[in-house]
Amino acid sequence: MNDFFRLESLVMQFGGLTAVKDFSLSIEPGELVGLIGPNGAGKTTVFNMITGFLTPTSGRVLWQGEDITGLSVHQITARGIARTFQNIRLFSDMTVLENVMVSFHHKVRSRFWKAMLGLPSHGKEERRIRQESYRFLQELNLGHLADEKAGNLAYGQQRRLEIARALATYPKLLLLDEPAAGMNPQETMELADLVLEIRQKHALTIFLIEHDMKFVMGLCERIKVLDYGISIAEGTPEEIQSNPDVIKAYLGEPKHA
């Protein structure tokens, strides 16, 4: 058992429907773990419970020795867990640079009245945020688009901006919800490289949901499989590929003649 990140028998019920049942998982620092499962298996629900969008019916989320179950979303982000969204959620009417700058806000030290009076200390902080945000954009090859409205970006660029924005909160654990959704094979390959690169550079632990099996199997060190809210398998990509339960969940049982 480690103290870094642990989910203890999470249960999420919506009325009579049990979306996730008894979900436990422990992730070591620096690991790259995948969460897969058919549509509606409850993968995003797990993410929502970790990030505070949903409060689990029972169970605990432990993060660096602290029980963060039931904290608000922004408090959890401030503790170093960032996420991206399955359906892209950018601040479309703001510029690309501003999108990233928002992520710095939870660490802003000058009070609002200093901002309103335009005191130098706030101006200094603003300039620092601008510089650092720009660095994140450059890192994700978006530097030349800094002044563009986020809503005008191409699809792949929007996905990258979501990652840049999440990175700018300086997380230790990054949750990626279907990062490769809607990408062509070429883009997916580039994304896999990018994920490895940012993990290396920012000393990240990554937990991701993805449907693209080639992507998941090639990238993740460990995979967890959910089906109808129940975790049916956990192991290395090789173990998962040959697991009969997983094959059954994805393809159904062979019909007897």
Binding site: F53, H74, T77, R89, F91, S92, S103, H105
Partner: peptide
Amino acid sequence: RAMKAIREDEIAAKAMG
């Protein structure tokens, strides 16, 4: 910027802290 972010997408704004 935080206010505008809430206007654009409150869920994403929360996730960004």
